[in-house]
């Protein structure tokens, strides 16, 4: 039995507490990996990984179940590619949080038809684009490594995909 008070909004509110394990300032909702919430006989949540090979997906799935359980709510979580993740699904709030955390947020995917545009990401410290792509691969699958020629410091970008 689902208590009457449980609504989809409430579930989303609770899911705000579940953070990306590698970027603890970003909730899974702001990351855009929660693709559907249903309340039928049970609460069902659909989620999708940022990258197919993301090793954190099982951890996130369990974290969702544990967090909702703390609120007295059992839930089933399904990982699916029905609605594939793209970096455009990161919310505006999420992008601001990423920048504050020191990670350049991904540019709008529509802005690049060619990956050439990736050469000059905006530095999250000085907001300038006098930067160089050092490696499209970084410490996690979803990050690339850049160097800011003005700050003389390396920084990471959440990759547009």
């Amino acid at each position: 039995m689902i208590p009457e008070a449980v609504t989809i909004e409430k579930i989303y509110q609770w899911l705000e507490e579940v953070k990306d394990p590698e970027i603890p300032v970003l909730s899974l909702v702001d990351l855009g990996v929660i693709t559907n919430v249903f309340i039928e006989e049970k609460v069902k949540i659909e989620m999708t990984p940022t990258f197919v090979g993301c090793p954190a997906i099982d951890y996130m799935k369990n974290d969702i179940i544990d967090t909702l359980r703390k609120h007295g709510q059992e839930a089933e979580v399904e990982v699916t590619f029905r609605k594939p993740w793209s970096s455009d699904l990161i919310s505006e709030k999420g992008k601001i949080a990423l920048k504050k955390y020191g990670l350049a947020p991904p540019p709008d995917r529509k802005l690049f038809t060619d990956l050439e545009i990736l050469e000059n990401a905006e530095c999250p410290r000085c907001n300038q684009t006098n930067t160089e792509l050092k490696n499209p691969f970084g410490p996690t699958l979803c990050r690339a490594i850049y160097y800011c020629n003005d700050c003389k410091e390396a920084f990471e970008q959440f990759k547009p995909v």
Partner: peptide, 20 residues
């Protein structure tokens, strides 16, 4: 170092794709 990271990341992607 960059190539070490790149090949390791691509390995993780490929093994993830095989799992899917």
């Amino acid at each position: 170092l960059e190539e070490d990271i790149a090949f390791s990341s691509m390995a993780q992607d490929k093994i993830g794709h095989s799992l899917a």
